[in-house]
Nucleic acid binder design. Sequence first.
DNA 1: TTGCAATTCAAACACTTGTATGAAACTATC
DNA 2: GATAGTTTCATACAAGTGTTTGAATTGCAA
Lengths: 223, 223
Amino acid sequence: MASDHTRSAILAAAERLYADRGFGDVTLRDIVAEAGVNLAAVNYHFGSKDELIAELFVTRSIATNRERLRELKAAEEQGGGRAPIEVILRALVGPTLRGCLGPENQRSTAARFMIRASIESVPPIRRIKNREIDHLRKFAGAMRRSLPDRSEVDIYWGLNFALAMAHHTIRESERLTKLSEGKCDLDDVEDVVERVVSVATMALTAGRTESKAPVRALARDAR
Amino acid sequence: MASDHTRSAILAAAERLYADRGFGDVTLRDIVAEAGVNLAAVNYHFGSKDELIAELFVTRSIATNRERLRELKAAEEQGGGRAPIEVILRALVGPTLRGCLGPENQRSTAARFMIRASIESVPPIRRIKNREIDHLRKFAGAMRRSLPDRSEVDIYWGLNFALAMAHHTIRESERLTKLSEGKCDLDDVEDVVERVVSVATMALTAGRTESKAPVRALARDAR
DNA sequence: TTGCAATTCAAACACTTGTATGAAACTATC
DNA sequence: GATAGTTTCATACAAGTGTTTGAATTGCAA
C-alpha cells in the first residue's frame, strides 16, 4: 500500500471542499486539484465518487457512534444496568451536538462536513444512515430499562423527538440565529445539549401519574 | 396565454415525478416525456429548471403558510389578541403535518412532493426557505403575547423545537416506523400533532415558577 | 541489476445534462 | 383570409460529469 499519501490527500481535500461548498458543486476535478493528485487516483483508490463520500461519512459517524455508546455504557454500568433517562439522552445527543456546533471559526473540518451531510443528504450518505437503526435500538433498549413503566411507543416517540431537536438545531442553526437576531447562543453547546435533554426528558416522563415525579425544571435554571 | 395546457401538464408531471423519485434523478427529459410535451416547453414556460422547481414549491408552501396564518389569526381573534400556546403551536405544526403525513396510499402527490423537498433540499428550494423567516416571526410574536413572562430566548427555542419535531418526524417517518416495528402509528396524524404540540408546550411552560400552571398531560391521555 | 507489481499520469471516452435556435404550426384579430 | 403574435417542435449545442484506458513511472524484492 506504499505510503497512502495520495489516498489520504484525497480524503482530506474532499472533506475540506465538501465542508466548504457542499456536495452539490464539488467535482472530482476540484478534489484532485485541491489534493494535488491525478484525476484517476480517485477511482483507483476508492472505486467511485460515491464510495469516497461513503468512506468519509462512515469514518466520521463511526467516531460519533462510538462516543455515544461509550457514554451510554459508562452510565449503565455505574447505575447497575439502569441509567437515569437524562444521562441516556445526553449520551444520545451530546456527541453529535458537540461535534457539529460551537464557535464557527473553530469548527473542525469534520464538523462542518457532518453538517453538510445532514443538510444535503446525498444518496451514498442516505444509504449509510439507513443502517443506523441497530445503533438506535441500543438506546431504545436503555431507555426502556430506565423507564420501565413507560409504554414502548412513548419511548420511541421520545427518542424520535430527542433526535429531532438535536439534528434540526444543527441543520437550521443559521436560521435560528437569524430568527432570534443572535439571541439564541448556539456557540454555547452545553446549553444547547441541556435544553434538548431537558425537553426530551419532559416528553418521556410527563403525564405519568404513577411515578409522581415532578417535571424537571429546565436544566439551565437548575445550574 | 391560450389554454395553459402545456404549462400545467409540465407542473403536474414534474410534481409527480419528483414526488416519486426525488430531485436527484429526474431530468427535464423525463418530465416532458411524462407530460407528453416538447423538451423546449419547459424553458419556454418557466425559464429554467430551477424556476420550475421553485414554482412548484412556492405554490405548495404558500398554501400551507396561508392555512397556518388563518388558524393563528382565528385563535388570536377569539382570545382577544392572545391565544393559548397550545393553539398557536397547533397552528404552526398542524397544517404541515396534516399535509405530509397520513396513510401512505392516500397521500396526495403534493404531500409526497413536499416530503421530498424537506428531505433533499435542492438549491432553489433552499433559497425560498430562507425567505420564510418573516412568516415564522409572526408565530414568535404570537407566542410572546401568549407567554409574556417567558424570555424571548426561550420562545425562540420553543419555536425551534416545535418545528424540529414536526419536520424531523416527516423526514424520518420511515425510519421511525421501522425502528418501532410499526408500533408508532404515523398514519394517525392528529395523534402526531398532539404529541408534538404537547411536548412543545411543556418545553415552553415548564420551569416557570411564577405561573404555577401544572404541566399539561400529554394530550392523547386527556382525550 | 533485473523483474514485477503497485501506483501515477495524460488523455480520451461515453454519456447526460440544461439550454438555445430557428423553423413550423397554431390562434385570434382585423 | 391575410397577418401578427404565441406556442410547439425537432434538433443541435456546449459544457460538465464520472469513469476507463494504457502507457509511463516508481518502489521494492530477488
